[in-house]
Amino acid sequence: MTGLALLAAINFHTLLFLLFAGLACGFAVGVVLADNVVRMALYLVLSLGATAGLFFLAGAEFIGAMQLMIYVGGTLVLLVFGVMLTAQAPFVSIKTSTGDRVLAGIVAASLLALLLQAAFSVDAWRRPALGEVAQPSATPLGMALLGARVDDPAAGAPAAQARSGYLLPFEIVSVHLLVVLVGAAYLARAKRRRTPRAIEVAASVVEPRAARGAATGSASALVGGGSR
């Protein structure tokens, strides 16, 4: 087998699949094994990016693009901001105890064995359809979100069994996103210093020392309870 014959024998779809699958799985395991939270965020970005490559290879190019734009470009940037906002020195790497690691390894091995057994159990899933050419899926997806299906119905299906569109789920998701963004902005808002009302100002003028002492006491109790 010379070099050219070797090149011709390689199925490049399979080669790229193996490349992206190895990257995705390897970096996912890296997320688990890393202790440093900044490294975990980096590995997660790389793992999700490689998964977008897998989506492209499966013929779902619109999903792959959305994975890159929303997940890698949006959600993970949010996570990285969270990491940066909380990355004080003691919290960058919080160690897990060895007993927990061993338990987690056992659980992971059994869960993986179960899932792999399920994946290999159906024979029809192991036979790829050769010679199929994937159709572009962006237009059918967009039309389906508008409520009209332009993709081919199931072969030989009568018109009564035509698949329905996704206008209602699309609307529900959009309202859900709006509610979630308002809620997130409400939860994460900066604590505004409350302007004292006139009666409180008068009270603090009457007993400034007592009020300040009580405030300091409760604050130190809070800190003590928090740091333990």
């Binding site: 024998a9 199925n11 193996l18 290879l57 899932l115 899933w125 192991r126 050769l130």
Partner: peptide
């Protein structure tokens, strides 16, 4: 390398 990718490959990932 010369086989085709099937659903099982994706399920493993």
């Amino acid at each position: 390398l010369d086989g085709a990718v099937s659903v099982t490959h994706y399920l493993v990932v």
